[in-house]
Computed example of a mutant assay.
Amino acid sequence: MGFFQGLFGNYSEVSLEELQKKHGAYLIEGEEIQTGFKLVRDTLIFTNLRILDFDTQGATGKKTRIHSIYLDTICEVSCETAGMGVDDSEITITYIRSPYRKANELLLGSKTFEFPKKFDVVALYVQLENMAHNNVKNLNA
């Protein structure tokens, strides 16, 4: 079922040991893996500092693009829970891309992640929304 979920764009949860073994070299000082998910060859990891998005490319899978979203840059989160049939859950994260967060004009980016029905997307949404709320409050202080 995991392979078919991958084909349909769904992440499935991966053990911390597997994530640490395969992606531990990419962690920065003081960073710890909290949870992670796999989508065929791609991986999504949540740490105590950031979200790491590993996009494996090419026929051999040797080339990988790694994108980081720092948790303290998340400013908006939206969630769509799974419905009936083949519907899946989605979380869209909007984050600040500009290095100067108190600038007159912020550069924003967004990324959407799809999860299978069995994953409790609401718990992840609430955690991310709490971060976004605190980040916006600190930004405007």
Rank of each mutant, 00 (worst) to 15 (best):
Y11G: 05
N10C: 12
Q20M: 13
A25I: 10
V126W: 05
E80Y: 04
E114D: 10
T56H: 07
L71T: 00
L39S: 08
T47F: 04
E18Q: 13
L128K: 01
S98L: 08
H23E: 15
A123V: 14
G61W: 00
F8N: 11
N48W: 02
V14A: 06
G58I: 08
T35R: 15
I51Q: 02
G85I: 09
E18I: 07
Y100M: 07
K21M: 09
F46E: 07
S15M: 07
D88R: 12
E31Q: 04
V86Y: 11
F3R: 02
G61Q: 07
Y70C: 04
H23R: 11
F8R: 13
L107P: 00
L19Q: 00
E18A: 10
L19G: 01
G61D: 05
R101V: 09
L27P: 04
T64W: 04
D55T: 10
H67M: 14
Y125Q: 11
G24N: 10
A103D: 14
D72H: 13
T81V: 14
A59Y: 09
N48A: 07
R50M: 01
L27M: 09
Y11F: 15
L49D: 05
V122H: 13
E114S: 14
K22G: 00
S68N: 12
Y70H: 13
I69P: 00
E32F: 07
N104T: 12
G30C: 01
I91P: 01
T112G: 04
R65W: 02
R50K: 12
G30V: 05
I74M: 10
F54W: 03
Q34D: 12
N48E: 01
E129N: 15
E17K: 14
I74Q: 01
I91Q: 04
E31S: 04
S89H: 15
E129C: 06
K38C: 09
T43W: 05
L7H: 05
K117R: 08
Y70L: 08
K102A: 04
K102I: 05
I45D: 01
Q5V: 05
T92K: 02
L107D: 14
F4L: 15
K21P: 04
E18Y: 06
A103P: 05
E129L: 10
S89I: 08
K117W: 01
Q57L: 15
L16A: 09
Q127D: 11
K62G: 04
G58T: 06
L16H: 06
G58S: 06
E114C: 13
I93K: 00
L52S: 09
Q5A: 15
R101S: 07
L108C: 03
E32H: 13
V126A: 13
Y70S: 08
Q57S: 11
G58L: 01
A25V: 07
Q5E: 11
K102Y: 06
R41K: 14
R41G: 05
E76Q: 11
L124F: 11
E129W: 04
K111V: 02
L16R: 08
S12M: 06
I28L: 12
K22W: 01
Y70Q: 09
S89T: 14
R101Q: 12
A123P: 03
A123R: 13
K22Y: 03
D53L: 06
L49W: 02
G83F: 07
Q127W: 13
V121M: 01
K111A: 09
S15W: 11
L16Y: 02
R65L: 10
R50G: 02
N104C: 08
